[in-house]
Amino acid sequence: MPRELMKVEHLKKYFPVKGGLLGRTMQTLKAVDDVSFSIYEGETLSIVGESGCGKSTTGRALLRLDEPTEGQIRFQDTDLLKLGKRKLRQTRKDMQIIFQDPFGSLNPKQTIQQLLYEALDIQEIVPRGKRIFRIAELMELVGLHPDTMYRYPHEFSGGQRQRIGIARALAVEPKLIVCDEAVSALDVSVQAQILNLLKSLQQQLKLTYLFISHDLAVVRHISDRVMVMYLGKVVEIAPKASLFRAPQHPYTQALLSAIPSVRATSPKEKIILKGEIPSPLNPPQGCRFHTRCPLAVERCVNEEPLLMPVGAEGHFAACHFAPKDACHSDSN
């Protein structure tokens, strides 16, 4: 069993919605609401779900780019929420992020050399006299010629800029990288190149990824485990093979049914969800999916389902209709 790198317990991230002349808090947006999970060394855990489900906010909260409202985040036995600014900066070298927009995340006024040098300068992990050699090494590591380090971001294509973003994340030798929609802004052919690069770097450098995406085809290619979120809640989490073979939550089943198929025989029946996603300002009581679920009954309206084991090892779902593991059925 791989060692646990990060453990997240009861994570919440609420955003106040202010209004009126005095700017008072009128409502609270519950972007992430009581989420718990673990990330293991060397794995790729993917988070999927529709826009607004809280997946990107979860990733940002883990790195304290968005300060969590409540909960506990333990990284290698260190409680991240108890660290001051100085200690947090030191710890951040082990946790980096690759952003969705490869152009917006790079300073257009700096050359690539300056961008990468800044990362090395902040953490001081490479002696000054050797930093230019480290930058050249990083460029080659992500498939770019070292001589291009003197260019500016606008002189590169989108895929090349994302390679530079990866190089910047790797500069401080992290253990965990949050990939926040890291390939969604790229052409399909370029997506495949970047995904293969990420997998190669993971094996070479023993990296751990939290991969955030709405594209299930991409998730299927890169993941070891998959966590499905809906309206700020985790509804299912499982090893990739188990989740794609036998999804247990109706929402996951609907997502998987929408994946395009190239097979002419035995076409999958698409599950069409009715209605819109409820507002996170006023989420439904009970199961948050019950307003769109074809299986919903009165219990779903009144009682929130717990995330419970559902058969295959490591497979959990939060649904009253999911077949509970016999060893745990009495507790639900």
Rank of each mutant, 00 (worst) to 15 (best):
Val188Trp: 06
Val297Glu: 14
Asp325Glu: 06
Glu304Phe: 09
Lys109His: 12
Leu120Arg: 08
Ser213Asn: 05
Asp77Asn: 15
Ser105His: 08
Phe99Val: 03
Ile98Glu: 00
Tyr14Trp: 12
Gln160Ala: 10
Leu186Met: 11
Glu124Trp: 05
Leu210Met: 12
Arg24Met: 10
Gly311Cys: 11
Pro68Tyr: 06
Gly42Trp: 01
Glu269Met: 14
Tyr251His: 05
Gly49Asn: 07
Ala61Cys: 13
Val301Asn: 10
Cys179Trp: 01
Asp147Thr: 14
Gln113Asn: 10
Leu141Phe: 05
Phe244His: 08
Asp34His: 07
Pro250Phe: 09
Pro108Ile: 11
Arg3Glu: 15
Thr252Gln: 03
Met308Thr: 10
Ala317Ser: 13
Gln110Arg: 15
Val219His: 00
Ile125Lys: 08
Leu116Asp: 01
His221Lys: 11
Glu298Ile: 04
Arg89Tyr: 03
Met227Glu: 03
Phe99Ile: 06
Glu43Gly: 05
Cys300Thr: 04
His249Gly: 05
Val172Met: 08
Gly104Leu: 05
His290Cys: 07
Leu5Asn: 03
Gly104Ile: 11
Gly104Thr: 08
Arg161Ile: 07
Gln253Val: 12
Leu201Lys: 12
Asn107Phe: 11
Leu201Gly: 02
Leu307Cys: 04
Lys206Arg: 12
Leu5Phe: 05
Ala258Ser: 15
Ala167Met: 04
Ala61Gly: 07
Thr252Lys: 04
Tyr230Phe: 15
Val262Glu: 10
Ile135Pro: 01
Arg131Ala: 10
Ala318Pro: 01
Thr252Arg: 03
Ala192Ser: 12
Ala258Ile: 09
Val35Trp: 02
Thr148Leu: 15
Ala312Arg: 12
Arg288Phe: 09
Tyr152Leu: 11
Asn282Tyr: 09
Leu195Tyr: 05
Ile125Met: 08
Ala326Ile: 15
Ala182Tyr: 03
Thr148Tyr: 12
Phe321Asn: 07
Gly159Gln: 02
His10Phe: 08
Lys199Gly: 04
Leu88Asp: 04
Gly104Glu: 04
Ile194Leu: 07
Ile97Thr: 04
Glu124Gly: 12
Leu120Asn: 05
Val35Gln: 04
Leu22Arg: 14
Leu62Trp: 00
Lys240Trp: 03
Leu144His: 01
Asp77Leu: 07
Ser266Tyr: 14
Ala171Ile: 04
Glu173Trp: 02
Thr69Val: 08
Val8Arg: 00
Lys30Glu: 09
Leu141Ala: 08
Ala238His: 03
Gln285Val: 12
Ile166Asp: 00
Cys327Ala: 15
Pro284Ala: 13
Gly42Arg: 04
Leu106His: 00
Leu65Pro: 01
Phe103Thr: 08
Met308Asn: 07
Pro247Asp: 14
Pro283Ser: 10
Phe37Cys: 09
